[in-house]
Amino acid sequence: MGNEERIIALDDVNAGYAEQIALENLSLEVHRGEFLGIIGPNGAGKTTIFKLILGLMEPMAGSVQVLGYSGKEVRKARPRLGYLPQREEIDPQSLGSVLDVVLMGRYSRIGLFRRVRARDREIAQRALAQVQMEKFASHPIGHLSGGQQQRVLVARTLAQEPELLLLDEPTTALDVATQQDLIHSIGGIHRALGLTVLFITHNVNTLIGLADRVLYVNRRLYAIGPPEEILTEPMLTEMYGHEVAILTRPDGRPCVIVGDSHA
């Protein structure tokens, strides 16, 4: 769990697009060093929370405070936030080597009219090493597998030297083994660097043993607390709209199974 320094505060926020409200009366505090898992059904407003934090969207009501900035000034915090959005696979013909892509994470730090320096390259190489992709620095990004590309994009956020990581379903469209590798890397980085992480996922199993708290949102804040309080059969059954069973693995860790557990 992180220390008590509050770095994000959403206070009674309403947000959405035109006539469609995505979030209602949401209040949330995140503390430095914390790993917050965010779960909820599709259209629950999970990504909207990230857009509010990044200042890509303004609340219709309520207030947002990020790293000491509030109101329209929230966008000033952007260079200190590493954001990995949901994405599709990168086109094989896409321009840029792996190192080029990771260096992009440095650009907001370097600033306008300034060039990339040796120190920026060192930081980018270090970020690649943190996701075990340093050997691929000169490869075209489009030639990597989906899992490798996702690691490179995580490295890009790390190269930004952020205080906060916002990861929006980073394991979507990856096979099970690659998901586990990536989750393991993200957990390792969180622990090693003490980074604050907000992690949206549909795969609640990834949060077990990783998240300090889990936020269950469905347009409103439905529940928030330690994983063992939130990831319960009644709560998850309601969230998925299907029966959910929580089994215990041989190593003692719980495992969530969605579907008909009596089949």
């Binding site: 966008r75 260079p79 936030l81 990995l84 959005p85 650009y107 907001s108």
Partner: peptide, 11 residues
């Protein structure tokens, strides 16, 4: 490469 992330990074 990624206009959404570029904007989110402050570009």
């Amino acid at each position: 490469f990624d206009a959404e992330v570029a904007e989110a990074a402050g570009i």
